[in-house]
Simulated scan of single mutants.
Amino acid sequence: MAAGGFCRLPNGRVVVALNLPSPTAADPVAGVRVLVHAQNRARALTRLRNLGLRAVYLRGNTAPPTPDEVTAVLHHPDGLIWRTAPDATVPPPTAPELWRPIRSLLRGAAA
């Protein structure tokens, strides 16, 4: 579940998308999809590492952010959001899950 990718925006900034294992003990099997808006890929990964996600690397561009994901992260004031990663074996629900700020994920992991 180490898929991830990035896309470069017209202004030179990037949006990085990563599928990571869930940091909560309630559901360790499920993963999360994290989106980061930053000046470049290195700064995007640094933002995640500064939040405590130390072993985060971007290898390749196998799962770049979709246009809807790019729009979501650009409209969020922090530029750092997440939601549970979609499972390819399960059909998508009728209403997609909403994006949440990264603080809610980290707060859940600390509890």
Rank of each mutant, 00 (worst) to 15 (best):
A109E: 11
I81G: 00
P92S: 06
D87V: 10
R100P: 02
S104D: 15
H75P: 01
R83P: 01
G108L: 15
I81T: 14
T94K: 10
P93M: 09
H76L: 00
W99Y: 12
S104K: 05
T84R: 10
V90H: 01
H76R: 02
L80E: 12
R100H: 14
P91I: 14
T84G: 06
H75F: 03
T84V: 05
R107E: 14
R100N: 08
R83Y: 02
G108V: 04
P91C: 12
A88L: 06
P93Y: 05
P91G: 10
L80S: 03
P86D: 15
L98I: 04
L80H: 12
A95Y: 14
I102T: 06
L106F: 03
P77E: 13
W82S: 06
P91Q: 08
V90Q: 08
P77Q: 08
T84H: 11
I81M: 00
I81D: 03
H75V: 02
L105N: 04
W99S: 09
P101H: 07
P101A: 09
R100D: 04
P77T: 12
G79Q: 07
I102N: 07
L106P: 04
R83A: 10
A109I: 13
T89L: 12
L105G: 04
P93L: 09
D87P: 00
E97G: 12
T94L: 14
